[in-house]
Amino acid sequence: MKAETPRPAGSGFGEAIMVPVRLAMGLVDAPLRWVQRKLGLGGMAAFFLLPNMLIFGIFVLLPFFINFAYSMTGGTALFLDDRTFVGTDQYARLFDCSNYIDPNSCTEDTFWTAVGNTAWFVVLQVTLMILFSLVTALILNRELMARSFWRAVFFFPVLLSPVVVGLIWKWILQRQGLLNFALYGFGFEPYTWLNDRNWAFAAAVGVSIWAHMGFYTLILLAGLQAIPKDLYEAAEMDGTRPARAFWRITLPLLMPNLLVVIVLVLIRAVQIFDEVYVLTGGGPGTSTLYLTQYIYETGFATQLRNPGLAAAASILMGMVLVVLTLIQLGLGRSSEKKGSRK
């Protein structure tokens, strides 16, 4: 037996907090007993499920379905009743280009700029994110002093709000900022990084990696720690070289986690908005304008808002995300199966 000393259930402070809660729950109980008598156990299941399903239906399912209706209507009116049906005009407008290689030749050139930017962003960010978080996870999986401290170091930015992340880096990258100060020490002249198209793009990629990499590192680290140590010992007994052990043991066993992480990073990268919006506002020009910002600005922010066009664009983006999520669920299931086979 663990604890021999008798411990009273619940401390005085906790009890004091619980008094009003008890009272409220007790008051609710009497009418609910009546409900239970009327509905039976199955009815009570429905009762417990109802609030969540109601909120979920109104704020997720309903918008999901009327989004299609929005994408088929035109005008600037907000409510569906006041909008005119235009069929597939909004989609046609999105795809109306005289030259499909050059986004500037399209009617909605900003949409295609956003698509192009997002595509580049996804490629760069996902590659670097996976690389950095994998290396960090491998390093954290070594026999380190104070491993939980180091894990915390890399995890810290994950909790920060995108606005805070954006502002911190905006402050560091500005002309009188820390980066220029550091480079000044090496003899470089101060530079306004965020006013440069390429550097702003690089900053968007870098900052989003900075902010989220700890999260993926954690998942990969959990995967690495789940690999039994005796496998490596057996490999060592067999005279396997470390490089070979990495390719033949670590990587295959980490693969389920790695695939899930890749898809998660992809899904997030496609939706990139918050921190970049605060950091660059999409600029300079449209160099860091991504899809979500395009949808937001087309639907709400500009003077001539066009909710229909925004809805059409969001549905196109949604399709990409659904495909990615289905891949993720499939991967999750197959890795579950593998787990159960062990």
């Binding site: 037996m1 663990k2 604890a3 021999e4 008798p6 411990r7 009273p8 259930a9």
Partner: peptide, 11 residues
Amino acid sequence: PYLDRRPGQLS
């Protein structure tokens, strides 16, 4: 003697 213990503390 066990009235104020929790089940986890009992045999």
